[in-house]
């Protein structure tokens, strides 16, 4: 017996794989379903092959961005018509939070990242510090140089993902920031005092990072909340990630002046 659309969706979600479910919510064939997954033929139909084709294409696009919305079409998938309303629900993979540097702040940031639904990777070249025992909340602890690890995952990083550089060591954080600004990642933040930040900006320029790439970096990292503890700092970083994603105006440390801790 062939699996129903629901059974296929259920098994896909249980396996932790991405999918988008399209449902006709207004128009002919109300309730009809099309389940779309990357690299697999769609399951179900919306009552018209041309509509299926157009919706499958749009659903993959929505899934890529992690968006869920209702779109309108003509009966055969025509754009700019509204005969058929299709609700496209994305079940995207969780966004990826990559934290470079196995320091005190890392555990707190990894915890808050998990709370917000991120898949969290902690990466540090120093195997003594980057251990699963120290970061049990992380999905993955990687012993590698930041730029080498970023090169491996660069193609998978997108607008929903974030890279936070907490290493506090130019040797590690300059190549990490340089590599991160050349990916499609939505957020790049780097920790450090204003003095560290100024020195690091110089070193980034020396390493050939352009002004436009440097302008992408939130440094010093986080919102200007007066955060002191690692946990408070983690909240200020995650709040900045949210504000950048939603385009809201929130006071970033980067855009203020004076000491971070006063």
């Amino acid at each position: 017996m062939t699996a129903s659309v629901f059974e296929t969706l259920r098994d896909t979600l249980r396996a932790g794989e991405p999918a988008a479910l399209a449902t006709v919510v207004e128009g002919p064939h109300i309730g009809a379903k099309l389940l779309v997954r990357p690299g697999v033929a769609p399951v179900g139909d919306l009552g018209d092959p041309d509509l299926d084709r157009v919706v499958a294409r749009d659903a993959l696009g929505e899934l890529e961005s992690g968006l869920t919305s209702t779109r309108h079409y003509g009966e055969h998938g025509e754009a700019r018509e509204r005969t058929v309303s299709v609700f496209i629900e994305s079940f995207a993979l969780p966004p990826h939070l990559v934290i470079f540097g196995a320091v005190d702040f890392t555990a707190a940031l990894a915890k808050v990242g998990k709370l917000l639904g991120y898949r969290v990777t902690v990466c540090d070249a120093r195997a003594v510090f980057a251990t699963v025992a120290r970061f049990p909340m992380a999905d993955e602890v990687v012993n590698d140089w930041p730029d080498r690890y970023l090169a491996k995952i660069a193609d998978d990083l997108g607008p929903r993902d974030a890279v936070c550089v907490l290493t506090h060591d130019h040797k590690f954080d300059v190549p990490a920031i340089a590599a991160a600004t050349r990916t499609r990642v939505g957020y790049v933040g780097a920790m450090g005092s204003r003095r560290t930040h100024n020195q690091r900006t110089e070193r980034l320029r020396e390493a050939g990072v352009t002004d436009a790439e440097i302008a992408r970096v939130m440094s010093p990292i986080g919102l200007d909340l007066g955060a002191r503890t690692p946990e408070e700092t983690a909240i200020s970083i995650c709040a900045e990630i949210i504000a950048l994603r939603t385009g809201r105006i929130a006071p970033s440390l980067r855009d203020a002046s004076g000491p971070i801790h006063s």
């Binding site: 869920t68 209702t70 609700f87």
Partner: peptide, 15 residues
Amino acid sequence: ARVVGVEGSGPRDPG
């Protein structure tokens, strides 16, 4: 029952 659209202030997102 699924939220398929929200206008203005809404407590939950589509989905």
